[in-house]
């Protein structure tokens, strides 16, 4: 082979991102390049550093490609935070499809310096609690809940819970020991955290599999490494990025989501689905978080309301498909 691409991420080798996205991508790229591209996947931060460094590792050429959550560097990607807002996002496929549009329209500046291969999202985040089943806003009062992002930190506090910010690896131990009573995460993460026997209650919003929030994930390539590819290999990469890869990722994450959800149900856990018509009290309570984001964007010189409306419209279109 003539080109080696080192892909770096923080999850374990059996996580859905590796098994469902990176490994199939590896195979497609290697096959379509006639073996001229050699993809090496390094899970679990094997190449060094901590998850917040991943984006810059790709930007600066420490690695060729990195996969990360944009929310791991709070404050750095404020425009992408719209998908973290409460009760907006849908399934992985839907949010990922909407993100393709949103990325083109709004995210070019934030992603400057890297060559984005895929901007995507997991299925919307559900609320998982240890002992207390949450069926209404009132049930959240006083619960200590791990928040996944700074947006949801505000969101949980607005809903009456106490948001606790902590690194993901701490979550299982923190749940067992009562440091937190619950966590806002997608089902898909259960596979690696192994917490189905700890959190026995799960709350979904609006509809089966509906959620509270989401996160923006990014598979990004070093710009110089991309530029250095001969044209025909650039085409191989292009043919396997963006929209072409979005379907694959959306499907993989939704599949993992359904599988982990089923495992929890099989284990005898309770899944509470809050019906769409009861969601108003939740929406009202968390509205200040949305207002805050819009205001922050507007203060920063963007049209916050238009971006929010756009994101909603993109999600609606994706849902309709």
């Amino acid at each position: 082979q003539e080109v080696t691409l080192r892909v770096h991420h923080f999850l374990s080798a059996d996580a859905p991102i590796q098994k469902g996205v990176l490994e199939p991508w590896d195979k497609m790229v290697e096959d379509q390049s006639g073996g001229r591209i050699d993809v090496q996947i390094y899970p679990s931060m094997q190449l060094g550093g901590r998850p917040p460094q991943l984006f810059d590792q790709a930007r600066d050429g420490v690695v060729d490609i990195a996969w990360t959550l944009l929310g791991y560097t709070p404050g750095r990607f404020p425009l992408s935070e719209v998908f973290e807002l409460p009760f907006l996002s849908g399934s992985a496929a839907e949010t990922t499809a909407a993100l393709q549009e949103y990325q083109k329209k709004y995210m070019a500046d934030e992603l400057a310096g890297v060559h984005p291969l895929l901007i995507h999202a997991p299925a919307a985040y559900k609320l998982h609690t240890k002992d207390k089943a949450v069926a209404g806003v009132a049930d959240l009062a006083g619960l200590k809940v791990r928040a996944p992002s700074r947006t949801m930190t505000d969101g949980l506090n607005a809903l009456g819970a106490t948001a606790v910010g902590m690194p993901v690896p701490e979550v299982p131990q923190a749940l067992t020991s009562g440091v937190i009573d619950g966590a806002v995460i997608p089902w898909e993460v259960f596979g690696s955290l192994r917490i189905e026997s700890v959190t026995r209650n799960h709350t979904e919003f609006g509809s089966e599999n509906g959620g509270l929030s989401s996160a923006v994930m990014a598979l990004v390539m070093n710009q110089a490494a991309y530029n250095a590819l001969p044209d025909d290999l650039k085409q191989v990469i292009d043919a396997n990025s963006g929209a072409a890869l979005a379907d694959l990722a959306g499907t993989a994450f939704d599949k993992a989501e359904a599988a982990e959800r089923q495992k929890a149900i099989d284990a005898g856990n309770t899944v509470t689905v809050i019906p769409e018509e009861n969601l108003d009290e939740w929406r009202q309570a968390s509205q200040p978080v949305i207002d805050t984001w819009v205001k922050a964007m507007t203060d920063a010189g963007h049209d916050g309301q238009a971006m929010l409306d756009d994101a909603r419209a993109m999600l609606d279109r994706a849902r309709a498909e």
Partner: peptide, 16 residues
């Protein structure tokens, strides 16, 4: 310098 330039901060308290 880059952390400052990009406005990176902590999640809850938003300390730069």
């Amino acid at each position: 310098a880059e952390m400052r330039e990009y406005g990176e901060q902590t999640m809850v308290l938003r300390i730069p």
